[in-house]
Lab assay of single mutants.
Amino acid sequence: KLPPGWEKRMFANGTVYYFNHITNASQFERPSG
């Protein structure tokens, strides 16, 4: 399970990334916590 605010998303080319809808942060590494 991801930390609060984070969700797993995917680009059109299939690349997975993680987006935080609270802070609008995005990253390729899975957030810890």
Rank of each mutant, 00 (worst) to 15 (best):
G14F: 03
M10R: 09
R9E: 01
G14E: 04
F19V: 07
P4D: 12
S32N: 13
R9A: 05
P31E: 01
F28H: 08
G33E: 14
Q27R: 05
T23Y: 05
R9I: 08
M10Y: 14
Y18W: 09
K1M: 14
T23V: 04
G33A: 13
L2H: 01
V16M: 07
V16T: 09
K1N: 13
S32E: 14
P3R: 03
Q27G: 02
A25H: 13
N24F: 08
Y17L: 06
N24V: 04
P4S: 09
T15D: 14
P3S: 05
S32V: 14
L2W: 04
S32T: 14
F28M: 12
N13W: 05
P31Y: 01
R9T: 04
R9M: 11
K8E: 13
G33V: 14
K1G: 14
G14M: 04
S26M: 15
L2A: 03
H21F: 14
N24D: 07
W6K: 00
R30W: 13
R9V: 09
I22S: 08
G33Q: 13
E7K: 04
Y17K: 05
T15K: 12
M10W: 12
F11C: 15
E29D: 11
A25D: 10
H21W: 14
Y18E: 01
R30D: 12
S26N: 07
T23Q: 04
Y17E: 08
F11V: 06
T23M: 06
N13Y: 02
N20V: 01
L2N: 02
M10L: 11
F11K: 14
Y18D: 01
K1P: 15
N20F: 02
N24Q: 14
S32H: 11
Q27T: 09
K8F: 07
Y18R: 00
F11Y: 14
G14W: 02
I22G: 06
S26G: 07
K1F: 13
G14N: 05
K8Y: 07
T23F: 05
F11I: 06
S32G: 14
S26K: 11
A12L: 08
F28D: 07
T15H: 08
N20W: 02
K1Q: 15
G5I: 04
N13L: 04
E7V: 11
F28T: 12
Y18K: 00
W6E: 00
I22T: 09
R9H: 08
Y18N: 00
F11D: 15
T15P: 05
K8S: 08
P4G: 08
P4V: 10
I22F: 13
R30G: 04
Y17F: 09
P31L: 01
R9G: 04
F11L: 15
P4F: 12
M10K: 11
V16S: 07
Y18M: 00
T15M: 12
T15W: 06
Q27I: 06
P31W: 01
R9P: 00
K8R: 12
T15S: 09
G5M: 06
I22K: 07
M10S: 11
A25N: 10
Y17H: 05
P31Q: 01
R9K: 10
Y18S: 00
G33T: 13
T23R: 03
K8Q: 12
N13H: 04
N24M: 11
P31D: 01
N13M: 02
G14H: 02
I22M: 11
S26F: 13
G14P: 00
G5S: 05
